[in-house]
Amino acid sequence: MPQNFVFRTIELNGQFLRTAVRPGSSNLPPLLVFNGIGANLELVFPFVKALDPDLEVIVFDAPGVGGSSTPGTPFRFPGLAKLAARMLDYLDYGQVNVIGVSWGGALAQQFAHDYPERCKKLILAATSPGFFMVPGRPHVLLKMASPRRYIQPSHVVKIAPDIYGGAFRRDPDLARGHASKVRSSGKVGYYWQLAAGLGWTSIHWLHKIRQPTLVMAGDDDPIIPLVNMRMIAWRIPNAELHVIDDGHLFLITRAASVAPIIMRFLAEERQPAVIRPRAEPLAKH
């Protein structure tokens, strides 16, 4: 576990959020991470460690996950985006870059749409546009519907090759290492996260996302088939797609090769196109 994170638990109108900030000295805006369903913030540390050490990074446990409190009723994605904005206010951040993975990618889309002034650039990893997605295989989705893999570490070792694909098919040690970092806060929080996405879709407003967007997908992702990421990249006007030779958790399993792609994207200064006036025809004499 990285030792240079500053951990805080903050209260926002009765909701306690466990946060962790890796301070940085980069001129780039801090990177805010929206994690996957049921995933506590420690699970993203291998990816954060692969990024430029000067980049400031903000991670947190979603309501009902890890060290954050479980609300009495579920948040929807707009409510979670609002909570994230208030968290940034509390921690004294203005504009950030945003990365969202899987379930967190849906939240990242909502945040970029609802708070465009807070989100400079957007990175979407292994995610979908929600209700109108092309679903994964039924037996995989059935396993994803249960929080058992976050409650019984031995269970995730058993099912990881089927649900995560990629490197998890070849290396059982990856699943054991992943399971060792899990910090579950119970079933209710997981079901609340599932409820956040019921009936939700971004497909009808993705074209309104104007931030430069990096879309990243694994070519062996049993949960989110690649076609979904192609759809997102097609719908967002200023998006580019990178396909990674791995599965659903490529941010972790391929961190060393993915991190430089992300850092180049964050450092790139894109200039708007200059539309020059049409030249007037020369006067005839």
Rank of each mutant, 00 (worst) to 15 (best):
I209T: 07
R210V: 00
P212F: 01
M231D: 14
K208N: 10
V243Y: 15
P212T: 07
A233V: 04
A239R: 03
K208F: 11
H242F: 09
A217K: 05
V227R: 11
P237D: 07
L226A: 08
V243M: 15
V243F: 13
L214P: 10
N238F: 04
G218A: 01
R210H: 12
P222I: 09
M231T: 15
I209Q: 06
H207S: 14
D246C: 02
P225W: 15
I224C: 10
D246A: 05
P237V: 09
P212R: 10
V215W: 15
L214G: 03
I232Y: 13
D245I: 05
D221T: 11
I203Q: 02
I244H: 03
I236W: 06
M229F: 08
R230G: 15
D219N: 11
R235S: 02
L206E: 01
L214V: 01
V243I: 15
E240R: 13
Q211N: 10
D245P: 00
M229Y: 14
M229D: 12
R230E: 15
A233Y: 03
E240G: 00
A233C: 10
P225E: 13
I232C: 03
L214Q: 13
H204Y: 14
K208M: 12
I244V: 08
G218M: 04
T213N: 02
A217C: 00
H207P: 02
T213P: 06
L214Y: 12
I203F: 05
L214D: 07
N238T: 04
V215F: 13
V243P: 04
I223C: 04
L214C: 06
I224K: 01
R235D: 10
D221I: 08
P212L: 02
D245S: 10
V215P: 15
P222V: 07
G218K: 05
P222T: 08
P222H: 09
G218E: 02
I232D: 10
D220F: 02
D245C: 01
L241R: 09
A233I: 02
P225T: 12
I232M: 05
V227Q: 13
E240D: 09
G218S: 00
K208P: 03
I203W: 12
L214A: 04
V215I: 14
P222N: 04
W234N: 12
E240F: 04
P222Y: 07
L241I: 03
D246N: 02
L206W: 09
V215K: 13
R230F: 14
A217S: 06
P225D: 12
I224R: 05
I203D: 05
L241V: 01
N228W: 10
L214W: 14
P212A: 11
A239G: 07
P225H: 10
I223H: 08
M231I: 12
W205Q: 09
K208G: 00
L226H: 10
R235I: 02
I203P: 00
K208R: 15
K208T: 14
W234C: 07
P237L: 11
R230D: 12
W234G: 08
T213G: 01
M231L: 14
D246F: 04
I224H: 05
P212W: 05
L226M: 12
E240N: 04
M216R: 08
N228K: 04
D220K: 05
Q211K: 04
G218D: 10
D245N: 11
H242N: 11
G218V: 03
I209E: 06
L206P: 00
E240S: 01
D221K: 06
D221C: 03
